[in-house]
Amino acid sequence: MYISRRRALKSASVTAAVAVSGCLGESISGTDSSKTIAVREVESSVSAAVFRWGIENGVWSSRNLELDFQTVPYGRYNRQLVTDESDIGAPATVAQMEFMTDGEPLTFIGPQQNMFNRMFVRADDSSIEDPTDLVDKRLGVPAAVSSTTTIVHRALIDETHGIDIIEDTAETRAEDPPVLWELLQDGELDAISEFSGYTIRGIADESTRTIFDPHAIWTERTGVGLPTTTFTVRQDWFDENRDITERFLQGWGESVSLFRSDAETALNQFGRAAGISDPDEAAVVGELMDNDTVFGPPFYEESLADSHWSFFELLADRQVLDLPDRDTAITTADAFDQG
């Protein structure tokens, strides 16, 4: 991404401070000027492993930041900002937009996970080849019918195949990702939409096959991914902490890069936090990371913000959600040079 001269100078000054601290034999994370940021991530997400790998490698402490980091259940994770449990979070994108339209003063500050979550069937089930075959079938969706994955899958399948996966199926059942996986394996569901770590399991496991891949559809159309989760803050917190927010996102970008460069080691240490413990699943993660499938860039440039907004407009056209104000909903990289 484009780095302004001001931002580059700030980054250099932080690096210099770390170097001086190291020469003196002191840890910068222990100074009185370090800032603790509360962050919550959902259980069984590959992002949890990336966070823990970054913390392990000091990407935030080197920027004079400490993370109060926890993995929590989906409902709590999704409401972390409106309940003031966290300072910065990356909850489900659609849910945060709904909070915005309800009057919550939130703003997106950077992409996190792309929508690489897929829909799977059992490999030996020849009755389902693509989403048009889901009519009168039993479908499982992750966490809630209102989850971002479900909403995105529903909207894109409706647009591309003319099928409503809620109305046209015999049953649509919302469960946590591990439960969905077992229900598919046991034959109690015919197809499942999965989330994060269990999408990776579905790609790696020979007992399942993909029938819908929204990332492939949207990148072919626009050249960039769709957002599943997006780094979000309260507007007043951002106004008072622009520099801290910028350093946090820089740390996230470095953490993703470090994870990509040594995914096998990172997953050996922290894969369980993402629900990944199998070598085949780790290999899938490495491949997806190499292809920039899993994560977007740490900051919103205008072109990416425009692409994501065009998808939000598609959702609004299908009356899935109401749109908040565009200028306040997405904070782009230029805003960090205005503090």
Rank of each mutant, 00 (worst) to 15 (best):
I3T: 11
R6S: 04
R7S: 04
K10H: 08
K10D: 06
S11A: 11
S13P: 00
G22A: 12
S27L: 08
I28M: 14
G30A: 11
T31C: 01
S34V: 09
T36I: 12
S47L: 08
A48Y: 08
R52S: 14
W53A: 14
G54T: 01
G54L: 01
I55Q: 07
G58F: 06
E66L: 12
Q70T: 12
T71A: 15
P73T: 05
Y74P: 02
R76E: 12
Y77N: 13
V82R: 13
V82M: 09
V82K: 10
D84P: 00
D87M: 09
I88K: 04
T93R: 10
D102H: 12
G103S: 05
E104P: 01
F116W: 15
R118W: 05
F120I: 08
F120T: 08
A123L: 06
A123G: 05
D124S: 14
D125M: 01
S127G: 05
T132W: 04
D133L: 04
L134V: 04
V135G: 02
D136L: 00
K137C: 02
G140M: 05
P142Y: 06
S146I: 13
T148H: 01
T149V: 15
I151P: 02
H153Q: 15
R154I: 06
A155Y: 08
I157P: 05
T160G: 03
H161F: 12
E167G: 10
E171Y: 01
T172S: 08
D176Q: 08
P177C: 04
W181A: 09
W181P: 03
L183I: 00
L184A: 06
G187W: 04
E188Y: 08
A191V: 03
S193R: 06
G197S: 10
I200C: 14
R201Y: 09
R201H: 12
G202R: 12
I203E: 14
A204L: 04
A204N: 01
D205Y: 03
E206N: 05
E206C: 02
T208Q: 09
T210H: 04
I211P: 06
T219R: 15
V224P: 07
T230V: 14
R234Y: 01
R234V: 03
D236L: 03
F238M: 13
R242C: 01
E246G: 04
R247T: 02
F248P: 02
F248E: 07
L249I: 07
W252C: 00
W252F: 01
V256L: 03
A263P: 07
A263N: 13
L267Y: 07
Q269Y: 07
F270W: 07
G271E: 09
A273G: 05
A274W: 05
G275N: 06
S277A: 12
P279G: 00
P279Y: 01
D280A: 10
E281K: 02
V284W: 03
V284D: 02
E287G: 09
N291Y: 14
V294S: 08
P297C: 01
F299Y: 08
E302L: 10
E302N: 09
H308V: 10
L314N: 13
A316M: 13
R318D: 15
D322V: 08
P324H: 06
T328A: 01
I330R: 11
D334Q: 05
D334T: 02
